[in-house]
Nucleic acid binder design. Structure first.
Length: 268
DNA sequence: ACCCAGGGTAACT
DNA sequence: AGTTACCATGGG
């Protein structure tokens, strides 16, 4: 089934390939497909939104995934009160996705000291090797499928030193030491400390899990680009106009810095 | 050969 | 509490 979804702020290419998710590909001009958890979707860019090609029962899932109910027009207008943020938001229609908690946890463990292209490859091999086969490809592995494995069992992923971290995360989730649904309900600070009990999860990965997988819109992952942005533009912190959506503002600044500013303000 | 990539850990001051 | 080498892999 095809569903037309109206949405004034959603550029699929920018949203799917800005380093927040790693399971989509471009099929052709304005056409994409990919997975979240165990679900598959095909997407087409429209002038006033997107077309969702999926089972009827999965339509609410994808509307939630793209956070269609959040009004970005209000958000971006507020961000525009700050000059740097206004520049970052101009020409960008990125939505912060509401991804699956476990998938987000594993994905951003893999992301550490890594680049987006190789992260995507490792996750693809992880799904092919350990995910359930579904019609269009492979689901993201459940924690149970990864728990109890040995590092060498993941050698085909070529994930390097991250393999042991993946296994520790799966073990803690299946063992109940890490309850992602409970962590979702905690404050940013409590949740961050709880996530950091997993090996290979530090402040940055924890904040990515909070923002992209547990929908803490106030969590701000401090990667190298955001550290540069903060040092140069915001030595005293992000402006008031971000409200409780600092994480979403961060995603615009992140993309702005690594695409538009990398050869100018932040060259070498 | 060197440097970097959506960093974290352990071992140092 | 704040620095620093090291961790695997692949692309520039």
């Amino acid at each position: 089934m095809i569903f037309e979804i109206k949405c004034d702020c959603l550029d699929l290419k920018q949203t799917l390939f800005c380093g927040q998710c790693f399971r989509f590909r471009e099929l052709g001009e304005g056409e994409y497909d990919g997975f979240a958890g165990e679900k598959y979707v095909k997407l087409i860019q429209r002038e006033d939104g997107i077309a969702l090609c999926c089972d009827e029962e999965d339509k609410p899932f994808w509307e939630e995934y793209f956070d269609i109910s959040l009004d970005y027009a209000v958000l971006l207008e507020s961000f525009g009160k700050d000059g740097t943020l206004k520049a970052a938001c101009t020409g960008r229609k990125i939505r912060v996705l509401k991804q699956q908690p476990f998938e987000t946890l594993i994905s951003f463990i893999i992301s550490q000291n890594n680049n987006i292209k190789r992260i995507t490859g490792i996750i693809d091999r992880l799904c092919r090797g350990f995910g359930e086969k579904i019609e269009a490809g492979y689901a993201f592995p459940k924690a149970e499928a990864l728990a109890g494995l040995k590092e060498e069992d993941l050698s085909e992923l070529r994930a390097g030193f991250r393999a042991k971290y993946i296994i520790d995360a799966a073990n803690k989730v299946t063992g109940g030491e890490t309850d992602l649904e409970k962590i979702r309900l905690m404050s940013d600070e409590e949740a961050r400390e709880e996530l950091k009990k997993i090996k290979g999860v530090g402040d940055k990965v924890a904040d990515c899990v909070l923002l992209f997988g547990l929908y803490h819109t106030s969590a701000v992952p401090k990667d190298v680009w955001i550290k540069r942005v903060n040092a140069y533009y915001y030595p005293d912190g992000l402006p008031e106009c971000v409200g409780r959506y600092a994480g979403i503002a961060q995603q615009y600044l992140f993309d702005y810095a690594r695409t538009d500013l990398k050869d100018t303000v932040f060259k070498k």
